[in-house]
Design a protein around this nucleic acid. Structure first.
Lengths: 232, 232
DNA sequence: AGAATAGTGTCTGTCAGACACTATAGA
DNA sequence: TCTATAGTGTCTGACAGACACTATTCT
């Protein structure tokens, strides 16, 4: 039986926690990248993350949030596990295991902060290939994007890429950027109403035409899953 | 920056790989458990798994499969990542990270093997509470069950709990045991036909009434996801 | 014949797509 | 008035649920 009490009986794999933080800005899907200050892949762009501090962190989620806060100065409103990526050859230092989280945030609060540093940037997800990224991080981001696209077909997840107050037009555009296809405004309205997740605000807002109704996620509202996908 | 080249600069968390292997037998959902031979929780039932062997394993999937093969003598036809469970207090030895896989198999081949040993058994998922299991493994199994139930609403995953050749009646029963609700036979037939994943076999088989058509997964067929859930 | 299971035909209900139509703000 | 965007009304289409009906096998 392989589970020994002696904690050092086995060579442990290298374990890290990384995050794929997405936002939607300038009509494109963007991901937060960090220029690596250490080997391996020093100077290349990679995902924000690092080692668990086993003395102060409660769990790996805290690790992910801590590393993201280091880079952005704020905590993302949505964070879930994506997947573990592992292998004997994906890190030159040896067998490595990376737990990847997948997070969403509105661009507004973050961009002010990262404008002050030069090792953290939003990069367009569809333009990563020209970057030659660290490790297998480009592949990881593509997997995260696929998950985001899929979830967007049956949930309102993209609201976390918008400011707290948003209009149907903004949400529609955000969804269309993520799934790379147009949806019917009417279908979105039906979902907003039937989900019961949102509340309409008093004030309406300018939009280039008729004033638009603003909405916000109700306090404590869960993201519900619809039983059908958008089928565009 | 926290990523140092020196592999020993940080205390690594304890990293293990465990699997939740489900099957459907005797009209209930069962999970494969192992009686622990070592501390901690020696003598308690827990999930099959253990440490990665970084010198011989290619990745963590191989770790999961190797440990399962040790216990069952066969490889499960379906295996996917469930989730990582981590924390400073879930293992008395210190901060631990467990990558949990979620697997399905037909009972037939496994039971012959595990009948010869007394530290591996199928246990009913709905009866685990009386066992007082190791670690947080009972909670992990409930999460895996929830994922299996959810996926069963929009995919044909439960075919992996059946032998290679199966009838619609068997699949229907298997699905109903997993989701704990009846479904319409007609709805299942529509899915079998529209998915194009299965082929009808020549020979029909006795079933207590009219002979039943047998099906099998086509070679290399992917499990497709339907765009609507069963809505029972 | 009767019970049991397999399989079909077909109507209803729900919700997404499509798209015309109305409403309202700014230039 | 013209354009742009917001929002409504309503028809169609896809597919799940419901359930009656037929088919086939065994006792």
């Amino acid at each position: 039986m392989s589970e020994q009490y002696d904690i050092n009986a086995f060579k442990n794999p290298l374990f890290t926690v990384d995050s794929v933080l997405f936002t939607v800005a300038n009509d494109t899907l963007k991901v937060l990248l960090v220029k690596r200050a250490n080997e391996p892949f020093i100077g290349k762009w990679g995902l924000p993350g690092g080692f668990v501090d086993v003395d102060t962190h409660h769990d790996t989620k805290q690790t992910a949030l801590t590393k993201l806060k280091d880079k952005t100065s704020v905590l993302p409103p949505y964070l879930e596990q994506l997947q573990v990526f592992s292998g004997a050859t994906r890190d030159p230092r040896g067998f490595s295991v990376t737990l990847v989280y997948f997070a969403l945030i509105a661009e507004q609060g973050v961009s002010a902060h990262i404008a002050t540093v030069d090792d953290v940037q939003w990069k367009e997800v569809n333009q990563l290939h020209s970057l030659s990224m660290a490790f297998d991080h480009e592949m990881i981001i593509q997997q995260a994007k696929a998950r985001l696209m899929q979830k967007t077909l049956y949930s309102m997840l993209p609201v976390y890429c918008l400011p707290e107050h948003f209009t149907i037009g903004q949400l529609k555009k955000c969804i269309e950027i993520i799934i790379e296809k147009p949806i019917q405004r009417k279908s979105l309205i039906r979902r907003i109403e039937s989900s019961n997740m949102f509340e309409a605000l008093e004030e309406k807002v300018k939009s280039g035409g008729r004033l638009a109704q603003q909405y916000r996620l109700k306090d404590g509202a869960d993201i519900i899953n619809f039983e059908r996908n958008f089928v565009v």
